[in-house]
Design a protein around this nucleic acid. Structure first.
Lengths: 228, 228
DNA sequence: GTCTATATACGGATAGAC
DNA sequence: GTCTATCCGTATATAGAC
């Protein structure tokens, strides 16, 4: 049995509200979420939300920052690891992403929503953690590109492809499932399949000799001034 | 000079409001858009919106249905054409999509937003136009898949890849541009490059003998249990 | 700490003047 | 047709009882 001191009770309640908020926010988005929904989901009253967190927005920031930082931290080690080869790194990255997305399918949509609503809102805080810094995988990626005479094609294309093929299906899943009458389980099974498929596809793309009609006029060293 | 009858004046104002609404809706999404915003953007008063359209939702439906149907109609012919080969069809489809997305970068985000807010809201109306029906390209796609012994891998993966690589960069562009300090022009140039690249990549994937470790256990006729 | 009841703000819709 | 002024529902935030 558990003894309940005031602080223990308090911490527990606060955590429950945060968990409820995370579920509702990631599912319905900030605007469509009512504090009443969170109250109901948490099992507590509406006023408690304002007792622990000053406002809906504060709660939102806290919860989502936490979510993002958990994920960011969980992959930062992998991306910076100097032992893992690039293909293996890609494989692990995709696998990790897909696991996370299956567990938390609303997150990417949420991130996009925030990015559109106001890039400055969350970005500085979370983005600073991983964004600008030079991760080792970036170096590996560029090295591979030049080694394979791919310097005429912007390596960012392959990165786009990696992220697109991994994340987009989750973002579009409501549409996809609506049109194909696919269950959540069936969709998730598809995504698990892609853990093997995507790295293979990316690998094939990296080996492909892409014949560009004209060298792109994209400056490849466009340094970032600040994280904004 | 133009004579202004009542109907002419009326039509003009109505059109201006619709255009303003389209801009604001696609930029901020339905929930975050206030009718006051649309009024301001249109140069007219708030009450006019309700005079011409009964409600915010009616206005929204009208405007977005129009947008989607313009696009859907513009590609329906291509998808059903029996002369064009599959690779050529893919090439034209990607090109058409990218042109549209460069011209209207907010549209996919908007569609996703609506899909998450309420799948039933717009979907039945617009989706019915193209969704379930058997487009000729679907037949071509499946024929190609079986012809190349790809029947062990769900062809939906390649379709996902096609859409992902084409659409996702636009959706994620605010994040990408924030992190790389890329200008809109530079981004658009990248997307134009992808008109050639994506079909090449998809083609390569279609040729690839994908060795599945185990045949996927996805029942292809799995009815939908719940929406959330 | 947790509840009920309420103040306050915001946004969609409408009435009525012109 | 277009405006100003206003109503009214909804949702956040807070006061105060327990």
């Amino acid at each position: 049995m558990k003894t309940k001191t005031d602080t223990e009770k308090s911490a527990s309640t606060e955590e429950k509200i945060k968990e409820a908020a995370r579920r509702v926010f990631t599912q319905k988005g900030y605007a469509a979420t009512r504090t009443r929904d969170i109250a109901e989901e948490s099992g507590y009253n509406l006023a408690l939300i304002n007792y622990y967190f000053r406002s809906k927005e504060k709660l939102f920031d806290i919860v989502m920052l936490e979510q993002l930082q958990i994920f960011v931290h969980s992959i930062a080690g992998l991306l910076n690891d100097r032992e893992t080869t690039l293909p293996k790194k890609i494989e692990l990255l995709v696998s990790h992403y897909i696991d996370m997305l299956i567990a938390n399918p609303g997150l990417p949509f949420f991130i996009l929503n925030e990015a559109y609503a106001g890039p400055e809102k969350l970005f500085e805080k979370v983005g600073a953690g991983v964004a600008g810094q030079d991760l080792y995988i970036r170096k590996q990626w560029l090295e591979f590109a030049t080694a394979h005479k791919m310097n005429t094609i912007n390596p960012i294309h392959l990165f786009m492809n990696l992220m697109s093929m991994t994340v987009f299906p989750f973002i579009a899943s409501p549409i996809l499932r609506n049109k194909t009458n696919m269950s959540t389980d069936a969709f998730n099974a598809l995504m698990v399949e892609r853990k093997k498929l995507i790295p293979a596809w990316i690998d094939a793309m990296m080996q492909m000799p892409v014949k560009q009609s004209a060298p792109p006029k994209i400056p490849k060293s466009k340094q970032k001034g600040e994280t904004k």
